[in-house]
Design a binder for these strands. Sequence first.
DNA 1: CGTGGTAGCGTGGTCCGACCACAAACGCGA
DNA 2: TCGCGTTTGTGGTCGGACCACGCTACCACG
Lengths: 244, 244
Amino acid sequence: MTIVKGDSRAWQQVLAHVETQLLGGDVRPGDRLPSERALAEQLGVSRSSVREAIRVLEAFGLVRTATGSGPNAGAIVIATPGTAMSTLMRLQVSATGFPVADIVRTRLVIEAGVVGDLCTSHGTSDQLTEANALLDAMDSDTLSAAEFLALDAAFHLALAEASGNTVIAAMLAGLRAGIEAYASEGASRIADWPRTRDRLRAEHRGILTAVHARDAAAAHSRIHDHISGYYAEIVPPTRNEGPN
Amino acid sequence: MTIVKGDSRAWQQVLAHVETQLLGGDVRPGDRLPSERALAEQLGVSRSSVREAIRVLEAFGLVRTATGSGPNAGAIVIATPGTAMSTLMRLQVSATGFPVADIVRTRLVIEAGVVGDLCTSHGTSDQLTEANALLDAMDSDTLSAAEFLALDAAFHLALAEASGNTVIAAMLAGLRAGIEAYASEGASRIADWPRTRDRLRAEHRGILTAVHARDAAAAHSRIHDHISGYYAEIVPPTRNEGPN
DNA sequence: CGTGGTAGCGTGGTCCGACCACAAACGCGA
DNA sequence: TCGCGTTTGTGGTCGGACCACGCTACCACG
């Protein structure tokens, strides 16, 4: 079944053509797409339409483009869903298509699943070295709040990547990107930041400890309290002073 | 004339401009973007570059475009993440960026979270009417396998939507789209389809029953067995005849 | 005065041709 | 043989042109 939807627009024809070749295995990651001019001639559309389709493919993390000549130039098929997912989430949050609360709830679900997988999988010790290194880096007292939060995000992402599930890792990266602005802004409202920071450190260690101990129940409750606790702390205070 | 920061490409400048206006609340869903020609003049880029940016926004489900004149024409900001997520997943699976196994594992995690939320939330009875109606529709014996699977997908999506989490609903729609071809093709390999169909029906009823009974543990195990059981059944048999 | 049809206008959609910057491959000359 | 300029091909951008569409407003006719 081809993807023949309402391909009324020329650029959709190009997109469908590339997707068909992708599905059929005619082109695979690492391969180069035909040049824009050649693709335009093959499909009987203008180069502008081809470019619009390639732009979509690029935004979805399916191809990367490079100027010049040689094997590294042109549109090369890749498969990097992380940035695309992050962009999608960030833009949707910007347009209020995704409420922050829903993203946090989704994080709860996904990260609970991550630690559950980690507890039941085997040989996770070496896969968690990255997470451990990040926790050590977060022990530095010279970190700003923003730097700490960046390491925090990297830690959670490292957990997801340690589970070996690329889809979950990409989704978590997207979720994080969607609420990054919210989390950063909320941190600035925390009165006693050093206290919160120390609590987060301890909670991180506790999560990893539970994972190493294969204690799924403890890991689940700890990651849940960790995430929900932070967002409960940075939720804007109910102020009666100005509904305008 | 405009000083370029990291957005070396013109269309990225347009994208950044629109995103900034989105974040600042200057434009919100329902509003119209300036016309392509006006936007090009404002930002000092060509209309082609503006169009490429709008194409990305459209692919991400942030705007919809319409020809003609009047209030319904032009690029109108919307927020429909479902189709964008589905397209992203489908394309990534096509490019083998997302293994099917990872998508199934992610479904397990997310749908387990969905039923968990449904068990703890209040007043879910009316929100589950859609799911119940789908189950009734699936009781028809005149359905083809493809039709049954379509209703199956709709049922799972209805569960996610009943949880009220737009992010999870969009993600589940995307996950389903990514493995739709795989699930359909696998169904054709099932020897005793009526038997599998009846089993799926019973499992669906069992899931809903557990949700209504607020039995989170039962709902969790039943949705897990339901999903993993189906994909275990359609896993391709090891065959040596593979064409290179 | 009311009504219906039509011309106008602005929109996105598409195509074309041109030029630029870039990078690799080529080829000529030292 | 080596080095460096030239050629070639790529994406990136721009401007212009035309089309189909759909609303708007106007004008002619009843």
